[in-house]
Amino acid sequence: MSRALPKYNKRRVALIGGAAAVALSGAVIAGTALAGTPSTSNGNDDAQTLAALPGTITCPDVASQLPEVPASAQAEVDRNLALLDTQIDEANKRLQSTVGQGGPNFVQNAILGPLEDKRISTVNRIATAIGRTAEKPTGLDSLAACTLTE
Protein backbone atom coordinates (compact mmCIF):
# COMPACT_ATOMS: atom_id res chain seq x y z
CA MET A 1 0.00 0.00 0.00
CA SER A 2 1.65 3.16 -1.14
CA ARG A 3 0.83 6.50 0.21
CA ALA A 4 0.66 9.36 -2.23
CA LEU A 5 2.73 12.42 -1.46
CA PRO A 6 0.92 15.69 -1.32
CA LYS A 7 1.49 17.90 -4.34
CA TYR A 8 3.85 20.31 -2.58
CA ASN A 9 6.11 17.45 -1.39
CA LYS A 10 6.46 16.16 -4.97
CA ARG A 11 7.65 19.57 -6.11
CA ARG A 12 10.17 19.79 -3.26
CA VAL A 13 11.63 16.36 -4.14
CA ALA A 14 11.84 17.31 -7.80
CA LEU A 15 13.48 20.64 -6.95
CA ILE A 16 16.05 19.08 -4.61
CA GLY A 17 16.79 16.27 -7.07
CA GLY A 18 17.23 18.75 -9.91
CA ALA A 19 19.55 20.95 -7.85
CA ALA A 20 21.68 17.93 -6.92
CA ALA A 21 21.91 16.89 -10.56
CA VAL A 22 23.01 20.38 -11.60
CA ALA A 23 25.66 20.50 -8.84
CA LEU A 24 26.95 17.05 -9.75
CA SER A 25 27.09 17.93 -13.45
CA GLY A 26 29.03 21.09 -12.66
CA ALA A 27 31.54 19.11 -10.61
CA VAL A 28 32.02 16.61 -13.42
CA ILE A 29 32.47 19.37 -16.00
CA ALA A 30 34.95 21.24 -13.80
CA GLY A 31 36.87 18.04 -13.05
CA THR A 32 37.05 17.18 -16.73
CA ALA A 33 38.24 20.65 -17.66
CA LEU A 34 40.97 20.54 -15.03
CA ALA A 35 42.12 17.01 -15.88
CA GLY A 36 44.40 18.22 -18.67
CA THR A 37 45.78 21.15 -16.73
CA PRO A 38 49.39 20.68 -15.62
CA SER A 39 50.12 20.87 -11.93
CA THR A 40 51.54 24.15 -10.72
CA SER A 41 52.69 22.81 -7.36
CA ASN A 42 56.34 23.23 -8.28
CA GLY A 43 57.32 25.11 -11.41
CA ASN A 44 60.83 23.60 -11.35
CA ASP A 45 59.77 19.95 -11.84
CA ASP A 46 60.66 19.94 -15.55
CA ALA A 47 63.98 21.69 -14.97
CA GLN A 48 64.90 19.23 -12.21
CA THR A 49 64.00 16.27 -14.41
CA LEU A 50 66.16 17.58 -17.25
CA ALA A 51 69.02 18.25 -14.88
CA ALA A 52 68.73 14.72 -13.47
CA LEU A 53 68.98 12.94 -16.82
CA PRO A 54 71.36 10.02 -16.54
CA GLY A 55 74.65 9.79 -18.32
CA THR A 56 75.65 6.83 -20.41
CA ILE A 57 76.86 3.37 -19.63
CA THR A 58 80.46 2.69 -20.55
CA CYS A 59 82.10 -0.70 -20.59
CA PRO A 60 85.67 -1.88 -21.16
CA ASP A 61 86.59 -2.72 -24.74
CA VAL A 62 86.78 -6.48 -25.02
CA ALA A 63 88.02 -6.64 -28.63
CA SER A 64 91.25 -4.80 -27.85
CA GLN A 65 92.03 -7.20 -24.99
CA LEU A 66 91.69 -10.41 -26.98
CA PRO A 67 94.68 -12.45 -28.09
CA GLU A 68 95.02 -13.40 -31.74
CA VAL A 69 91.73 -14.96 -32.80
CA PRO A 70 92.03 -18.16 -34.85
CA ALA A 71 90.31 -18.01 -38.24
CA SER A 72 88.02 -20.87 -37.25
CA ALA A 73 86.69 -18.83 -34.29
CA GLN A 74 86.58 -15.41 -35.96
CA ALA A 75 82.91 -15.49 -37.02
CA GLU A 76 81.71 -16.58 -33.56
CA VAL A 77 83.92 -14.02 -31.83
CA ASP A 78 82.65 -11.26 -34.13
CA ARG A 79 79.01 -12.22 -33.41
CA ASN A 80 79.65 -12.08 -29.68
CA LEU A 81 81.52 -8.77 -29.92
CA ALA A 82 78.52 -7.35 -31.79
CA LEU A 83 76.28 -8.77 -29.05
CA LEU A 84 78.31 -6.90 -26.44
CA ASP A 85 77.63 -3.66 -28.32
CA THR A 86 73.92 -4.49 -28.55
CA GLN A 87 73.80 -5.17 -24.81
CA ILE A 88 75.31 -1.75 -24.08
CA ASP A 89 72.88 -0.03 -26.46
CA GLU A 90 69.90 -1.76 -24.83
CA ALA A 91 71.14 -0.84 -21.35
CA ASN A 92 71.53 2.81 -22.38
CA LYS A 93 67.99 2.84 -23.80
CA ARG A 94 66.66 1.35 -20.57
CA LEU A 95 68.62 3.94 -18.60
CA GLN A 96 66.97 6.76 -20.58
CA SER A 97 63.48 5.26 -20.37
CA THR A 98 63.57 4.74 -16.59
CA VAL A 99 64.69 8.19 -15.48
CA GLY A 100 63.32 8.89 -12.02
CA GLN A 101 62.24 5.34 -11.30
CA GLY A 102 63.31 3.25 -8.35
CA GLY A 103 65.43 4.12 -5.38
CA PRO A 104 69.07 5.04 -4.98
CA ASN A 105 70.35 1.64 -6.18
CA PHE A 106 67.95 1.28 -9.11
CA VAL A 107 70.55 1.75 -11.86
CA GLN A 108 72.93 -0.74 -10.27
CA ASN A 109 70.29 -3.36 -9.49
CA ALA A 110 68.09 -3.07 -12.56
CA ILE A 111 70.52 -2.09 -15.31
CA LEU A 112 74.23 -2.43 -14.50
CA GLY A 113 74.00 -5.72 -12.59
CA PRO A 114 72.02 -7.59 -15.26
CA LEU A 115 74.25 -6.08 -17.96
CA GLU A 116 77.35 -7.41 -16.20
CA ASP A 117 75.78 -10.88 -16.00
CA LYS A 118 75.04 -10.84 -19.74
CA ARG A 119 78.55 -9.61 -20.52
CA ILE A 120 80.13 -12.35 -18.41
CA SER A 121 78.23 -14.97 -20.42
CA THR A 122 79.20 -13.34 -23.70
CA VAL A 123 82.92 -12.97 -22.93
CA ASN A 124 82.94 -16.59 -21.72
CA ARG A 125 81.52 -17.64 -25.09
CA ILE A 126 84.28 -15.65 -26.79
CA ALA A 127 86.94 -17.34 -24.65
CA THR A 128 85.43 -20.76 -25.36
CA ALA A 129 85.37 -20.10 -29.11
CA ILE A 130 89.04 -19.12 -29.07
CA GLY A 131 89.92 -22.01 -26.75
CA ARG A 132 88.63 -24.61 -29.19
CA THR A 133 91.66 -24.17 -31.46
CA ALA A 134 94.09 -22.04 -29.46
CA GLU A 135 94.92 -21.29 -25.86
CA LYS A 136 91.79 -20.15 -24.06
CA PRO A 137 92.18 -16.57 -22.83
CA THR A 138 91.71 -15.99 -19.11
CA GLY A 139 90.65 -12.94 -17.17
CA LEU A 140 88.07 -11.71 -19.67
CA ASP A 141 85.47 -11.68 -16.88
CA SER A 142 87.20 -8.60 -15.51
CA LEU A 143 85.99 -6.75 -18.62
CA ALA A 144 82.33 -7.45 -17.88
CA ALA A 145 81.62 -4.71 -15.33
CA CYS A 146 80.32 -1.43 -16.70
CA THR A 147 79.92 1.99 -15.12
CA LEU A 148 77.59 4.93 -15.40
CA THR A 149 79.35 8.07 -16.60
CA GLU A 150 77.60 11.40 -16.27
Rank of each mutant, 00 (worst) to 15 (best):
E135K: 10
S97E: 11
V69A: 08
S64P: 06
A63C: 09
A4R: 14
A21H: 05
D89N: 08
S72R: 09
A33F: 13
R125E: 10
V28I: 15
I111C: 06
P67M: 09
G102R: 06
R11P: 03
A33E: 12
G113P: 05
P60K: 10
S39N: 11
D45C: 02
T37S: 13
R12M: 13
N80A: 00
A71L: 13
P60D: 11
Q87G: 03
Q48L: 13
S41H: 10
K136A: 13
L81N: 06
A52E: 07
G102D: 01
V69P: 03
L24T: 11
L95C: 05
R125F: 04
A4L: 13
G103T: 07
R11S: 12
G102E: 01
A20Y: 04
V107F: 02
G17T: 10
E76R: 06
P38G: 04
I57T: 05
G17L: 09
G31R: 12
T37G: 06
N109Y: 02
A91S: 07
D45V: 15
R79Q: 14
I120Q: 07
I126E: 02
V22N: 02
T49Y: 10
Q96K: 14
G43V: 11
G17P: 02
S39I: 06
N42W: 08
A27I: 14
I88G: 01
S72H: 01
L140H: 08
T58D: 14
I57Y: 02
P54T: 07
S41Y: 11
A35H: 12
T86C: 01
A14E: 12
N92F: 01
A134Y: 01
G131F: 09
N109M: 08
